[in-house]
């Protein structure tokens, strides 16, 4: 009797996690399709939502992984993957932000220099016409 209720609970959490992984996967795919996320920035999201999906469907994989890397409590192995995913994606964000801020700096400098040249030319034309 007790065993049955545990099985039922495990099945429910399995369905939820499969559904959750699918939602993330499809959401990212849809955002890329609508061009809300660029392909190159979606790769880490897609990779990790696929991994979550695999672990949701193939439950023994988590136990196997935990045993292999010496984690006593298998769900902790899942949390480890989750934290790794977040770390990697956030580091990718830092890279992107650094690149963007550099591009922004270069653009502002270029615009300022060009604006100065345009003003100069305008003055020249104006003086020639007077």
């Amino acid at each position: 009797m007790g065993n049955d209720s545990i099985n039922i609970n495990l099945n429910i959490i399995q369905y939820i996690s499969i559904a959750g992984s699918l939602v993330i996967l499809l959401l990212v795919v849809e955002l890329v399709r609508r061009k809300k996320i660029k392909e190159q920035y979606s790769l880490l999201w897609l990779f990790f939502s696929l991994i979550f999906l695999v672990f949701s469907i193939w439950r023994e994989a988590l136990d196997l992984l935990a045993v292999t890397i010496g984690i006593a409590y298998p769900p902790a192995a899942f949390l480890l993957i989750l934290v790794m995913a977040i770390y990697l994606i956030l580091i990718q964000y830092s890279i992107i932000i650094s690149k963007l801020s550099n591009n922004l700096k270069e653009s502002i400098q270029e615009i300022s220099l060009l604006k100065h040249e345009i003003d100069n030319l305008k003055n020249k034309v104006h003086n020639e016409n007077v």
Binding site: K105, I108, Q109, I111, S112, L113, K115
Partner: peptide, 14 residues
Amino acid sequence: CVVIRHFINLGIGG
């Protein structure tokens, strides 16, 4: 005096 204006503050390096 030549003046160039950044329309956003970039800091001393920029």
